[in-house]
Deep mutational scan, measured.
Amino acid sequence: EDPKKEILLAMLMVDKEKKGYVMASDLRSKLTSLGEKLTHKEVDDLFREADIEPNGKVKYDEFIHKITL
Results as ranks from 00 to 15, higher is better:
Ser33Thr: 10
Ile64Gly: 07
Met23Ile: 03
Asp44Trp: 00
Leu12Gln: 15
Thr32Val: 12
Ile7Phe: 11
Leu27Trp: 01
Pro54Phe: 01
His40Ser: 13
Lys66Ala: 04
Leu38Cys: 03
Glu42Ile: 00
Lys37Gln: 08
Asp45Ala: 12
Leu34His: 12
Leu31Met: 08
Ile7Glu: 15
Leu27Ile: 07
Lys37Cys: 12
Glu6Ser: 11
Leu46Pro: 01
Met13Val: 06
Arg48Leu: 08
Met13Gly: 15
Ile67Phe: 15
Ala10Gln: 15
His65Thr: 11
Val14His: 14
Lys19Cys: 11
Ile64Pro: 02
Ala24Val: 02
Leu9Met: 14
Ala24His: 00
Gly56Leu: 01
Asp15Lys: 07
Glu17Trp: 07
Lys57Pro: 09
Leu46Glu: 02
Pro3Gly: 00
Gly56Ala: 11
Leu8Met: 10
Asp44Pro: 01
Pro3Cys: 12
Asp45Asn: 07
Glu53Ser: 11
Phe63Gly: 03
Lys5Ser: 07
Gly56Cys: 05
Arg28Glu: 02
Ile64Gln: 04
Ser25Arg: 10
Ile64Trp: 07
Asp2Ile: 15
Asp2Pro: 07
Lys18Cys: 03
Leu69Glu: 10
Asn55Met: 06
Asn55Tyr: 06
Leu27Pro: 01
Leu8Val: 04
Glu42Tyr: 08
Asp61Cys: 02
Leu12Asn: 14
Ala10Asp: 12
Lys18Val: 03
Glu17Leu: 04
Gly56Met: 09
Thr39Trp: 02
Leu38His: 03
Gly20Leu: 00
Lys19Ile: 05
Thr32Asp: 08
Ala50Gly: 04
Val43Asn: 01
Asp51Ile: 02
Val43Pro: 01
Leu69Phe: 11
Pro3Ser: 14
Val58Thr: 01
Phe63Lys: 03
Phe63Tyr: 09
Thr39Val: 01
Lys19Leu: 06
Thr68Gly: 14
Ile7Met: 13
His65Arg: 14
Ile67Lys: 12
Leu27Met: 05
Tyr60Trp: 10
Glu49Arg: 03
Asp15Pro: 06
Asp45Phe: 00
Tyr21Lys: 07
Ile52His: 02
Glu6Asp: 12
Met11Phe: 08
Tyr21Cys: 06
Asp61Ala: 09
Ser29Leu: 10
Asp51Glu: 10
Phe47Glu: 03
Thr39Asp: 08
Glu62Gln: 05
Gly56Ser: 12
Glu49Met: 10
Asp44Ile: 00
Leu8Thr: 05
Lys59Tyr: 12
Lys41Asp: 13
Lys18Asp: 10
Met13Arg: 14
Pro54His: 10
Phe63Leu: 12
Met11Tyr: 05
Ile64Glu: 07
Thr32Pro: 01
Ile64Cys: 13
Gly20Phe: 00
Ile7Thr: 13
Thr32Gln: 11
Asp61Gly: 05
Leu8Trp: 05
Ser29Thr: 12
Lys18Gly: 07
His65Asp: 13
Val43Gln: 03
Asp15Trp: 13
Leu27Thr: 00
Gly20Thr: 07
Ser33Val: 04
Ile7Val: 12
Phe47Gly: 02
Leu12Cys: 10
His40Ala: 12
Leu38Arg: 04
Ile64Thr: 04
Thr39Ala: 04
Leu9Asn: 14
Thr68Ser: 15
Ile52Pro: 01
Lys5Glu: 10
Asp51Val: 04
Val58Glu: 00
Thr68Ile: 09
Thr32Leu: 13
Met23Ser: 15
Lys4Ala: 13
Lys4Val: 13
Lys41His: 06
Lys19Ala: 11
Arg28Ile: 02
Asp61Met: 07
Glu62Thr: 07
Glu49Gly: 03
Ala50Ile: 09
Asp15Leu: 13
Ile64Ala: 07
Glu49Cys: 04
Ile7Cys: 07
Tyr60Gly: 04
Lys41Met: 06
Glu1Tyr: 03
Gly56Asp: 13
Lys57Trp: 14
Pro54Met: 05
Ser25Tyr: 00
Glu42Gly: 02
Lys18Thr: 06
Lys59Thr: 09
Arg28Val: 02
Asp15Ile: 11
Ala10Lys: 15
Val22Ile: 12
Leu69Thr: 13
Gly20Asn: 10
Ser25Asn: 11
Leu9Cys: 05
Ala24Leu: 01
Lys57Glu: 12
Leu38Gly: 04
His40Gly: 09
Glu1Gly: 11
Pro54Val: 06
Glu6Gln: 13
Leu46Ala: 08
Val22Asn: 00
Asp15Val: 12
Leu8Ala: 11
Thr32Trp: 03
Ile52Ser: 02
His65Pro: 05
Thr68Val: 09
Asp44Val: 03
Lys41Tyr: 11
Val14Ile: 13
Arg48Tyr: 02
Val58Asn: 07
Glu49Thr: 03
Lys59Leu: 10
Glu17Pro: 14
Val43Phe: 00
Val22Thr: 05
Ser29Glu: 14
Pro3Asn: 12
His65Trp: 00
Asp61Pro: 02
Thr39Glu: 05
Lys5His: 08
Arg48Asn: 08
Leu12Pro: 12
Asp26Ser: 05
Glu62Val: 00
Asp26Val: 02
Lys41Trp: 07
Asp26Met: 01
His65Ser: 13
Leu38Lys: 03
Ala10Phe: 04
Met11Val: 03
Leu27Gln: 02
Ile64Asp: 07
Asn55Glu: 10
Ser29Asn: 13
Thr39Cys: 02
Lys19His: 09
Gly35Ala: 07
Ile52Ala: 04
Arg48Ser: 08
Thr68Tyr: 14
Val22Met: 10
Val22Arg: 02
Asp45Thr: 06
Ala10Ser: 14
Glu17Ile: 08
Asn55Cys: 06
Leu8His: 06
Val43Cys: 01
Leu12Asp: 14
Gly35Trp: 05
Asp15Thr: 06
Tyr21Gln: 11
Pro3Trp: 15
Thr32Arg: 08
Ile64His: 00
